[in-house]
Nucleic acid binder design. Structure first.
Length: 812
RNA sequence: GCCCGGGUGGCGAAACUGGCAGACGCAAAGGACUUAAAAUCCUUUUCUCGGAAACGAGAGUGCGGGUUCGAUUCCCGCCCCGGGCACCA
């Protein structure tokens, strides 16, 4: 047959149309349980595809398609974009009617999605922007409220002036908003809703044991750091005179006899009584200075309050200071300074001439003597000069001293976490309304379940910064109190969008349930997720929140699993111009351009070929042409060789061996490592061999070659693969065929090629049948023409023979 | 500062368990086809030295050591890059 030119547009359009209404990926629930894969990503809905998503998509899609071909059913839903915000800030989000926008974009997504892949299981369509999804967000919120897991308090919160909204701690990056890295986050005191994720801190840590092996160590470490559990003790230093206690937290009670002052945070509540007007002004100055600067490079500063406090262990009177390096948000907001055994305290006390008193002796050293101490000793050792605890090891002293504090009522062993409760209030229009009503006489009243969902009003006016635009919508705000019927005000804060992404994959399993968020039986069937694929950038946001949600849902009694996903694969980020590519940054490279120019097959395959999936890739479009060329080569080769070829093929053996070797290699790579880049390289090698041997491949061998080639390409380039499949006169979608099997006999080479080295340097090759005895190999190697010159005048010390592989001659 | 990754040609990268470093692709150069161009096909390309050439020799996987017949791979020390955490008491 004459060869056909590779016209990707025509091919893709053709199959796009034919497959329009097909549902290839419908899980067959009556067969063995399908694997449940979740790809946390989506094509970017604005019409411009987000390359980070394409990458993620391509990886998961190729994998899922391969799994299908291997006979594993894969339920392969993709996460809905929970943020749904196309651009820079709240202003834009607020201007768009979300429902309309959402519906429009679902349509757009279906289009682009079909184009880039077609594996979406449309029946399970879930949009986190839909009122039906709001309903269940609100339902969960009310359940948490019932259980005391949701609460409201006035709190200092992170406020982004550009977004004009509150941010969670997780959303603050280096003191700036995660969406506006040039805008410093301010601190404001506002009434806010919180979820008590801290109640689950220990579980979140302990259950990581279940995830070992299945989750990347890197992600677990990041989560561990983020939760930041540290064990220590709390103790009260009573103010001399009033007896008012200053509670401090320390991980080193064993050093408390070395405490030479107490330092409180500038915003410590006690400062109201502790300080005079001047002192309070200084403290406020410190707070402000800290808010506007990188906390790392602020110099330690402090001042003496003029007051003293009593060390509860030694009875010693120590001065009370205010220090800018003491954080109100961690521990108790006050510390005891032990300069001899803490670096920061050392620096501070040196600067202000506060006494330094060593009380820990290194196990195999001397107790340091002040003056002359150059640095603090922060390790454990033997406790000295510490009354009845002298002579104990640090470890034992910590236990006994904590117990002593508890017996005497001035403290106890205590655990502190770095993680804070999850602030979920947002002053945006966009988002799930928090379902409570504020009544003058009844207080905070939950919206009754039967009144859910509370839906956002359609028409809003954007006021700009500062307050939720919902406050200006009287129909929304003014309601009767559900308890007493008196006029009341509806809560106008909406929920953080991370709520949406915390449980969407559960809803996928039962997307149209109107009675419950989902049927527990269905979750029991599908969960845990076998494989979750997402970006590493979510390690401490989304992936902690969704673990938390899972545990809460389990405690409510909806599900039985404690963790959402058994295995997590974090795909590397896409970097453009040195920064990670993201929608909010605006440095997104459009993959549409690639797709327009070279077609969807090339766009997908190029992304897969760039690097192994776990690696970051620096985006550059240069190589895409090579992929397009390759697909053209394959297509033309196939079309001109269907039903062609001589009767006898002198290269059949060689080509078939290469074919089966290729298949063996990529099967292995798919199975274990997901290194699609090398899979594709192998197929390219095969095609190079096919080109070189084309004239000598028999008509008998050609069908097998083309068929297997088409099937191997199916996970990466489904359209070309399908077109070749059809050219071969085959029916049905190529990517629903079984993955081709290789013949282990054919994979084997006829003879072994044995490397000959002299002193580890390559000096030649010998060919010998597999299993040739060592002695013979050795003799042949020594006699080799290329080898002999290197042996001349030398003495052969030793010969190492690795059968079928290598002979190394060691000479002197 | 602490905790993870990583460092291989002009570039993206390969090398499965310690056994031929640089597969595959990009880019570049040369050639074939063509009136010409595009497309396509073929060849060359780690560096240095020798040679007209086929080819040959040496060096080479961030740096310095070590283990080994043999190290990109294992061990020790250092440098650099990326990511995470960070006055966290």
């Amino acid at each position: 047959m004459p060869e056909k030119p590779y016209d990707h547009t025509q091919i893709e359009l053709k199959w796009h149309e034919r497959w329009q209404n097909a549902d290839f990926y419908q899980a067959e629930e009556n067969s063995a349980k399908p694997k449940f894969y979740v790809l946390e990503m989506l094509p970017y809905p604005s019409g411009t595809l987000h390359i980070g998503h394409i990458r993620n998509y391509s990886i998961g899609d190729a994998l899922a398609r391969y799994k299908w071909m291997r006979g594993f059913n894969v339920l392969h839903p993709m996460g809905w974009d929970a943020f749904g915000l196309p651009a820079e800030n709240a202003a834009i989000a607020n201007q768009r009617p979300p429902r309309e926008w959402t519906l429009q974009n679902i349509a757009a997504m279906k289009k682009t999605h079909r184009r880039f892949a077609f594996s979406y299981d449309w029946d399970r369509e879930v949009s986190t922007c839909e009122p039906e999804y709001y309903r269940w967000n609100q339902w969960f919120f009310l359940k948490m409220l019932e259980r005391g897991l949701a609460y409201r308090k006035k709190a200092l919160v992170n406020w982004c002036p550009k977004c004009a909204t509150v941010l969670a701690n997780e959303q603050v990056v280096e003191g700036c908003c995660w969406r506006h890295e040039d805008t410093a986050v301010e601190q404001r005191a506002l009434e806010q809703w919180f979820l008590k994720i801290t109640d689950y801190a220990d579980q979140l840590l302990d259950d990581m044991a279940q995830l070992e092996g299945g989750w990347p160590e890197r992600v677990l470490t990041m989560q561990r750091n983020w939760i930041g559990r540290s064990e220590g003790a709390e103790a009260d230093f009573k103010l001399a005179g009033t007896g008012e206690p200053i509670r401090v937290f320390t991980t080193r009670v064993d050093t408390i006899f070395g405490a030479t002052c107490v330092i409180v945070a500038p915003e410590h509540p006690l400062n109201g009584t502790l300080l005079d007007a001047e002192g309070q002004a200084r403290a406020k100055g410190m707070v402000d200075a800290r808010a506007n600067r990188d906390p790392g490079d602020i110099e330690k500063e402090g001042f003496f309050t003029g007051r003293y406090a009593i060390n509860p262990y030694s009875g010693e009177r120590v001065p009370v200071w205010v220090g800018n390096f003491v954080l109100m948000g961690y521990g108790t907001g006050a510390i005891m300074a032990v300069p001899a055994h803490d670096e920061r305290d050392f620096e501070f006390c040196r600067k202000y001439g506060i006494a330094i008193r060593p009380v820990i002796r290194p196990v195999d050293g001397e107790l340091a003597v002040e003056p002359g101490m150059q640095q603090s000793f922060t390790g454990d050792g033997i406790v000295e000069n510490s009354g009845p605890w002298s002579g104990l090891t640090s470890h034992v002293a910590r236990l006994e001293m904590s117990a002593f504090a508890e017996r005497n009522g001035f403290g106890q062993a205590a655990i502190t976490y770095r993680i804070k409760d999850w602030g979920i209030s947002r002053q945006r229009y966009w988002g799930t309304p928090i379902p409570v009503i504020h009544c003058a006489s009844c207080g905070v009243v939950p919206v009754p379940e039967e009144q859910l969902p509370v839906i956002l009003p359609d028409r809003i006016e954007i006021t700009g910064a500062g307050r939720s635009p919902l406050e200006n919508v009287p129909e929304f705000v003014n309601v009767a109190c559900p308890r007493c019927g008196a006029p009341a005000r509806r809560e106008t804060d909406t929920m953080d969008t991370f709520i949406d992404s915390s449980w969407y994959f559960y809803r996928y399993c039962d997307a149209h349930n109107g009675q419950m968020p989902f049927d527990p039986a269905k979750i029991a069937y599908w969960f845990e997720i076998d494989q979750y694929i997402g970006g590493v950038e979510h390690a401490i946001l989304h992936l902690i929140y969704s673990r938390f949600f899972t545990k809460v849902m389990r405690d409510i009694g909806l599900i039985r699993n404690s963790e959402p996903a058994r295995r997590l694969f974090t795909q590397g980020m896409v970097i453009a111009e040195g920064a990670k590519m993201s929608k909010s940054k605006g440095n997104v490279v459009s993959a549409d351009v690639l797709a327009e120019k070279f077609g969807a097959d090339t766009a997908r395959m190029f992304v897969l070929f760039a690097a192994p999936p776990e690696k970051e890739v620096d985006w550059r479009a240069e190589g895409a042409e090579g992929i397009s060329r390759f697909l053209g080569r394959v297509y033309r080769f196939a079309t001109r060789n269907v039903g062609q070829g001589p009767a006898a093929g002198s290269s059949d053996r060689k080509v078939l061996r290469k074919l089966h070797q290729t298949l063996a290699r990529i099967t292995e790579d798919f199975e274990t490592r997901w290194h699609f880049n090398s899979c594709i390289a192998r197929i390219m090698e095969l095609v190079n061999v096919l080109y070189a041997e084309e004239a000598n491949i028999s008509a008998a061998a050609m069908p097998e070659i083309l068929e297997k080639l088409a099937l191997m390409l199916a996970p990466f380039a489904p359209y070309v693969s399908q077109e070749i499949w059809e050219e071969l006169g085959k029916e049905g979608p190529a990517f629903r065929q079984s993955w081709p099997v290789f013949d282990p006999e054919l994979v084997k080479e006829d003879e072994a090629e044995i490397v000959v080295q002299v002193n580890g340097k390559l000096r030649g090759h010998i060919h010998a049948p597999f299993g040739t005895p060592k002695e013979e190999l050795e003799a042949r190697a020594l006699a080799g023409e290329r080898v002999r010159p290197f042996l001349a005048g030398k003495q052969v010390v030793k010969v190492i023979v690795v059968p079928d592989k290598l002979v190394n001659i060691v000479v002197k």
